[in-house]
Amino acid sequence: MNIAILGLQGAVTEHISATRRAMEKLGLKGDVTWAKSRSDIKESDGVILPGGESTTISRLIEKNGLKEALMEKPIFGTCAGMILLAKQGDDQVAQTGQTLLGRMDIQVNRNAFGRQRESFQSDITFEPDAPAFLREKPFAGVFIRAPCIETTWGDVRILARLDGRIIAAEQGNCIATAFHPELTDDTRVHEYFLQKVAKRL
């Protein structure tokens, strides 16, 4: 298995190490690569879009011609990565003119939780119909200038909510979280993504 961490900008090394730990836990053999080019992405079995600034990352995706390659792969997006997975943004997203990949039937609210002053940590409980291993204990959620999902449609499954806001969801082979599992020791969301990727192999 080859997992590519899109390494244009943001918390890339954190995802590399979290994915390696998740692979080890699942007993999967594979590589985790720092992906910058179209071929890095094409050669991978799944891609992680890290947190960072979605405006910057989306500009660099376009500049480097990576969009097409990203349309075909299973993707796990955290924070900025979740914004990029969405079909629709909000006024802020429109203001910055960033292009979204549109892989998930979700509308996101960028910086829904406010500025850095409002960034927070909070325990998350996954929804009753989420996979059992995600529900067995609370997940330590780290939210940094975090977005949320405003609405979903199609066959999107909501995985977690916090104070009524949707903070994690999945659709087909994509997973989006508003929080940063890569900044904690808990690799369960990474494991869930790797399981999705493994199913296709």
Binding site: V12, T13, Q116, Q121, S122, F143, I144, R145, H180
Partner: peptide
Amino acid sequence: MQTGTDTVKKGFASMQKGG
């Protein structure tokens, strides 16, 4: 819900990397 923790502060810095 905790704001201004070490994780949240350093995490913000992590999101700036490569920029």
